[in-house]
């Protein structure tokens, strides 16, 4: 009767039946809750996947434009300015801030970019020539980095959600396919054991009553035989009043016993 799922090791008592029933109810509630959570997360997950797709395509375009604007700079300045830029940059102009967002109890980190307008470390680079191209290139790259930050935030959310959805789905499946059937099996087992006990008891009582009836019948027959023998003796030898008086005084006692037996049935 246990099947592949098995049942819990409990004594088949009415108390544990009650326990199991409340457990089954809890499991069903939990299952529906988790199922809803998983659906909410999956919805979010799909949305994030779509946005990642968009962001990646945007990144491709933006990076291309940015790389090209760097080519424009090297055309205008006519040389390598990389070293100069690296050395004159002291403070970050483009900064990233991390936030938390709560989606159905899951904390998703979100990165938010902002520019520190006051910081303009290499504003004078290319003063003689190419300054405008350099500034423009910086703007383009700032936009490119912005896209990257957005993408990073989405990707992190993607990974975390993926993990969480897996865990939730595993739980849903475990409840649906293991815990609920097992509890049900246990309840079935307890019920069947209780029924079995009932039947046993019934049979036992029946057996006892049967035995009693047989004993009574035997006793009746004996009395009847004794009476017949007495009657025959009486018929044969006339009257012996003493004995009949004795018999008559005994008879009601036996009937009393018989009545007691009837009460038991």
């Amino acid at each position: 009767m246990s099947g592949a799922v098995g049942r819990e090791a409990v004594f088949p008592t009415r108390q544990s039946l009650g326990l199991m029933k409340s457990k089954l109810k809890g499991a069903e509630t939990g299952h529906s809750l988790l199922k809803r959570k998983s659906e909410a997360l999956t919805k979010r997950f799909r949305e994030i996947t779509r946005r990642i797709d968009e962001a990646k395509q945007k990144m491709g375009r933006v990076m291309q434009i940015a790389a090209f604007s760097l080519a424009e700079v090297s055309y205008a300045v006519g040389g390598d300015i990389g070293y100069q830029i690296q050395e004159s940059a002291k403070q970050a102009r483009f900064r990233v801030r991390a936030k938390h967002e709560n989606v159905s109890g899951v904390f998703l980190p979100q990165f938010e970019s902002y520019t520190e307008e006051g910081v303009n470390d290499f504003g004078l680079t290319g003063l003689g020539k190419g300054g405008q191209q350099i500034q423009r290139c910086r703007e383009t790259y700032a936009r490119a980095v912005e896209t990257l930050v957005e993408l990073a935030s989405l990707q992190t959310a993607f990974l975390i959600l993926d993990e969480v959805i897996k865990v939730v789905n595993r739980r849903v499946n475990a409840i649906e396919h293991v815990i609920i059937p097992r509890t049900e099996n246990t309840i079935k087992y307890i019920n069947s054991e209780l029924d079995e006990l009932d039947r046993e008891e019934f049979y036992r009582l029946k057996k006892v009553s049967g035995k009693k009836q047989r004993d009574t019948a035997a006793a009746d027959a004996e009395i009847l035989a004794a009476r017949q023998a007495q009657a025959e003796k009486d018929a044969a030898s006339g009257t012996t009043t003493d004995t009949t008086a004795d018999e008559q005084t005994e008879a009601p006692d036996i009937l009393g016993e018989q009545e007691d037996n009837d009460v038991i049935f």
Binding site: N120, G123, L124, G126, L127, G128, K129, G131, Q132
Partner: peptide, 24 residues
Amino acid sequence: DRRSINITLNSFGTELSKQDRRKL
């Protein structure tokens, strides 16, 4: 002349003061 014009154009929005700019 080109340098003067470029320096002027590129110095807008930077901390380069007008006196300093003139020296260039």
